[in-house]
């Protein structure tokens, strides 16, 4: 009991363990100065992340520092940065874990810089959009919007793509990719892994449509399995796995060695569920449907 107390106090200690230098990339589009690095001294407590360090700088040393973050728990994918030679999430990187006295924080490479540590991800999202990352069904009455009923999918079928659905669109993978380092139009690991994710979803019938978008020079053929995207992915999505499987999926399907997956049927019966007493109705839609 006493032991446990002692441990608790040492884990949650507020004491400053050491001081590190944050070497931070600075750039502002309207001060006319070229990009530069600026040093800040940051006292480090146990449990402090790089994002916490940036908060410290902004709160105490320099309020002009810009960076992007939201959830501070590796869920939103906003805080991707190039930290001590690897693309990482600032909120998922412990300062002490880096075992360095100087923490170099730069914006994610392979994206344009908007300001300081803020990369422009619009191309990245455009590439995602371009592979039709949504369920495509052929029959009119099964159109997903508005939903009529659920599709029946087994847990095994779910696991074939589930891992890729964990992607938070943080953009680290493209920052690590050697092809993206020179190739502006290559779709990149995230979009391609998402294409595989929807191609492999039994509820989806869009394979043929996506095939046209993928069988272009900027498709998965630009990937040579350096694997860096998977190494930096903070969510274990393993986009490189998705891209290689996508190549196999396309080629083996074209060669007739792989049959298209079976299509999840629409559940015929509405599940008999009664509203439990005391639970209010949902409020009316605020957005009108045409």
């Amino acid at each position: 009991m006493a032991d446990q107390k002692e441990q608790e106090t040492s884990v949650f200690t507020e004491e400053v363990i050491k001081e590190v230098i944050f070497r931070v990339h600075r750039f502002s589009p309207d001060d006319g100065k070229p990009p530069r690095m600026q040093d800040y001294k940051v006292p480090v407590k146990r449990g402090m992340t790089v994002l916490d360090g940036l908060h410290y700088i902004r709160d105490n040393l320099d309020s002009t520092l810009s960076y992007r973050f939201s959830c501070r728990m590796a869920i939103c994918g906003s805080c991707g940065m190039f930290i001590n030679n690897l693309p990482r999430l600032a909120c998922k990187t412990q300062i002490l874990e880096l075992e360095a006295d100087t923490i170099e924080v730069k914006p994610l490479p392979n994206y344009e810089v908007i300001k300081d540590l803020v990369p422009d991800l619009s191309d990245f999202f455009e590439k995602h959009r371009s592979v039709m990352p949504y369920l495509i069904r052929e029959e009119e009455e099964e159109k997903i919007d508005p939903p009529t009923n659920e599709f029946l999918q087994t847990p095994d079928e779910l696991e074939r793509f589930l891992q890729f659905a964990y992607c938070t669109k943080c953009g680290l993978c493209l920052a690590g990719c050697p092809t993206v380092a020179t190739d502006k139009v290559f779709l990149g690991p995230m979009a391609l892994a998402q294409a595989f994710r929807y191609n492999s979803d039994t509820r989806d019938q869009g394979f043929e449509k996506r095939l046209e978008l993928l069988c272009v020079p900027e498709g998965p053929w630009r990937c040579h399995f350096a694997g860096s995207c998977s190494e930096v992915c903070p969510k274990g999505v393993d986009p490189a796995l998705g891209v290689q499987l996508l190549k196999g999926q396309i080629v083996f399907t074209k060669l007739g060695l792989k049959k298209p997956h079976k299509i999840a049927p629409l559940a015929t019966e509405k599940p008999e569920a009664k509203r439990r007493p005391g639970i209010p109705e949902a409020p009316p839609r605020t957005v009108k449907k045409e």
Binding site: G32, E112, G176, S228
Partner: peptide, 22 residues
Amino acid sequence: GTISKPENRLGIVGWFYAGSFS
């Protein structure tokens, strides 16, 4: 006096080295 957005693409250097990878 504004500077256009730095491209920050690693370029061919990125083929050779882009951080501590395996």
